[in-house]
C-alpha cells in the first residue's frame, strides 16, 4: 500500500484544474516528481507544490495499491480523480466540480459535500458521498448523448437537479431528496431516491427510477399496477411516452 496525503496550502480564490490528483497519475511517480507536476489555476500554469502539500510514501507503486487522502477544503479543486481506473481517493472534506468524471474503476469517497457534475460520464468504479451532491450527478456534459455508463454512486444526503441526465447504465442511489428532473433522458440506468423529487424520468426511454418519498409524475407516464418492493407498495408507471419509452418509474404508494 502507498498512501499519499494532499493538503491545500490555502483556500483558493480561483479554481484549480486538479485532474492530476488521481491514483493513475501518482502511481508511477516519486513524491518529488508528484510535487513538480504542472497544474492549471485559472489561466496560469503552476507546480503542484505551489498550491498543495504532498506527503506520504515515496516510490512507485501499482495503481491499485495507491490511496490518496485529501485533507482540507477541495471545493475549488475541479476534476479530482478524473478517469481513474483503480486505487482509492479519500476526501476528508468536500470535493469540487467534476470529481470522478469519466472514472473507470476504484473508489472515490467523500466525507462532506460534492459539487456539481460528480461522476459525470462515469464508466465504472464506485463513488460514495456522506454529505450532499450538487447538480448533474452522474450526468453527461453539455451536448453529450450519454452520461454515466457503468459503476455505482451513493449519496447519503441530497442531490441537486438533473440527477443522472442522459444516464446510459450504472446505478445511482440518493438517500435524501433529489432536485428537479432526475433521470431525464435516461437510456438504461438505475436510480433510487430515498426522499422526494419533482418530475422524474422526462424523456426516459429505458431504465428504472424508484422514488420512496413524494414525486410529481409527468402526464406522459402511463399508470400501471401497484407492486410490492421489499415489503412496501409502489405505484408503477411506464414512459416517457413522448419518446415511446419503456422506462419504469416506481413511486411509493401513500407518499404522493
Amino acid at each position: 500500500m502507498r498512501t499519499i496525503t494532499i493538503t491545500p496550502l490555502k483556500a483558493f480564490e480561483i479554481s484549480v484544474e486538479a485532474e492530476i490528483i488521481s491514483p493513475d497519475k501518482f502511481a508511477p511517480l516519486s513524491l518529488s516528481q508528484i510535487r513538480s507536476l504542472s497544474i492549471w489555476q485559472g489561466n496560469r500554469k503552476r507546480k503542484l507544490s505551489d498550491l498543495f502539500r504532498a506527503e506520504g510514501d515515496d516510490g512507485p507503486a501499482k495503481v491499485e495499491d495507491v490511496t490518496i487522502t485529501l485533507q482540507g477544503d477541495f471545493s475549488r479543486a475541479k476534476r479530482i480523480a478524473e478517469g481513474m481506473t483503480a486505487g482509492k481517493v479519500e476526501a476528508e472534506g468536500g470535493v469540487g466540480m467534476h470529481a470522478g468524471n469519466n472514472m473507470k474503476g476504484g473508489l472515490l469517497s467523500v466525507q462532506k459535500d460534492a459539487e456539481d457534475w460528480l461522476g459525470r460520464e462515469m464508466r465504472g468504479g464506485k463513488i460514495t458521498v456522506r454529505g450532499n451532491a450538487g447538480n448533474y450527478l452522474g450526468a453527461g456534459y453539455r451536448g453529450e448523448k450519454c452520461g454515466m455508463r457503468g459503476g455505482e454512486i451513493e449519496v447519503g444526503g441530497n442531490a441537486g437537479a438533473y440527477l443522472g441526465e442522459h444516464l446510459c447504465g450504472g446505478s445511482i442511489r440518493v438517500h435524501g431528496d433529489a432536485g428537479d428532473f432526475p433521470g431525464a433522458a435516461n437510456q438504461g440506468g438505475t436510480i433510487f431516491i430515498g426522499g422526494s423529487t419533482y418530475l422524474p424520468g422526462a424523456e426516459m426511454t429505458k431504465g428504472t427510477i424508484t422514488v420512496r418519498g413524494r414525486a410529481r409524475v409527468l402526464p406522459s407516464y402511463q399508470k400501471m399496477e401497484i407492486m410490492s418492493i421489499e415489503g412496501e407498495d409502489f405505484q408503477k408507471y411506464v414512459g416517457d411516452l413522448v419518446e415511446k419509452g419503456t422506462g419504469e418509474l416506481f413511486v411509493r404508494v401513500g407518499s404522493s
Partner: peptide, 14 residues
Amino acid sequence: IMRPDDARLGIEPR
C-alpha cells in the same frame, strides 16, 4: 453552438 461535446475533443491551450 449545438456541439459543445465536439468542442471538448480538440482542446489545445494557448
